[in-house]
């Protein structure tokens, strides 16, 4: 797409979408939202970039290698935090009973491990959305 207006608006909008996605991920345990919704928003911002600036430039921004690392890293955060509870002697993904600090209700740093898990899910969902779209689009271009 070689339109100046679309390109300028996209450059203007993408940071706001990404900040909103990160906000939703980090506030997942105190307000509506969470890892899945915020990750989907983060993925949508890069899909918008792909649509406007083309798949080759987008591949440069978020390569296959980066998506591999993000996807494996996201699920590894989830599993590692879940396994901490097993080492303490509790079932998988036990939260407060396994010794995670509760914090004060309503604060960002509260609810034990939930914020960490949300960040992991957010990274994984965002990279999955982008990879799905890139995989579908790349055969059309070649």
């Amino acid at each position: 797409m070689n339109d100046t207006i679309v390109k300028s608006i996209t450059r203007l909008v993408i940071p706001f979408v990404q900040v909103y996605g990160i906000f939703i991920i980090l506030n997942g345990h105190v307000s509506p939202g969470g890892g899945f919704s915020g990750g989907a928003l983060l993925g949508t911002s890069l899909i918008l970039y792909t649509l406007v600036f083309g798949a080759i430039k987008a591949k440069h921004k978020f390569s296959h290698k980066a998506s591999e690392i993000a996807e494996s890293g996201g699920i590894l955060i989830f599993v590692t935090v879940g396994l901490i509870a097993i080492f303490v002697g509790m079932p998988f993904l036990t939260n407060l009973a396994a010794g995670f600090p509760a914090g004060s209700a309503g604060a960002i740093l509260s609810a034990g491990m939930i914020p960490i898990i949300m960040i992991g899910i957010g990274i994984k969902v965002a990279s999955t959305m982008i990879t799905l779209f890139h995989k579908l689009i790349e055969e059309v271009i070649q």
Partner: peptide, 23 residues
């Protein structure tokens, strides 16, 4: 919560994936 997910997934990502398939 569901509204947020529906707006992002249903109106955004799903239609984009369908567009990619139609192309």
């Amino acid at each position: 919560d569901v509204a947020l997910t529906e707006a992002a997934i249903g109106a955004g990502v799903t239609s984009l994936l369908f567009f990619a398939v139609i192309s």
